[in-house]
């Protein structure tokens, strides 16, 4: 019993000690999302090999340079109004612009090995990964059905973190 109590206290301490972000201020949801976007491919199999990672933002861009700054890998961010099958994107982050809705954008790349990411803030249409903010934390839903249609496999580690998994 005592050991357990100790463990709880240690945990609290670790959370307090390790929880502090290096920058000092709490990073914004956008920055967190930007960082996540470059990390998702590491948990996905089936994406064509090749560096740098092409991240296409289809629709309005709220990140600015956050993606480039927080990227875990070498990354090229392309901001497109319209995505086509030949855009050469590894990751498509669809926010739904005037020229191409989220749904259209996803339909264009469906079946191709492209990881699609959507945001709950931009509408209900979900890609393979769908950001939401729950309990002041950025979290995500996962749709393995869409992924397998595009011949992508999402890592179980990723599924373990997801709020929900559609399969």
């Amino acid at each position: 019993m005592r050991a357990k109590a100790l463990l709880v206290r240690l945990m609290a301490f670790a959370l307090a000690a390790g929880g502090a972000a290096p920058a000092g201020a709490q990073p914004s949801d956008a920055a967190i999302k930007a960082a996540f976007i470059t990390k998702f491919p590491a948990f996905v199999q089936g994406l064509p090999d090749g560096a740098p990672l092409n991240v296409c933002i289809v629709g309005p861009d709220s990140f600015g340079s956050a993606i480039e700054r927080s990227a875990a890998v070498r990354v090229v961010v392309r901001r497109l109004a319209v995505v086509t099958p030949t855009s050469g994107c590894h990751v498509v982050y669809a926010t739904g612009g005037a020229r191409q809705s989220v749904r259209d954008a996803l339909a264009i790349v469906a079946g191709a090995p492209v990881l699609t990411i959507t945001d709950g803030g931009a509408g209900p249409t979900r890609g393979m990964i769908h950001f939401v903010v729950a309990g002041e934390r950025v979290r995500f839903h996962v749709d393995t059905l869409q992924a397998s249609r595009s011949h992508l496999q999402l890592s179980s580690k990723l599924l373990a973190l997801a709020l929900s998994v559609r399969q």
Partner: peptide, 21 residues
């Protein structure tokens, strides 16, 4: 490392601590 990679990457602290424990 394998066990903590995802929680680390996606800053899922509860999961991370769980694995740690």
């Amino acid at each position: 490392a394998g066990a903590v990679s995802a929680p680390l990457a996606f800053e899922d602290r509860p999961t991370l601590l769980q694995n740690l424990r």
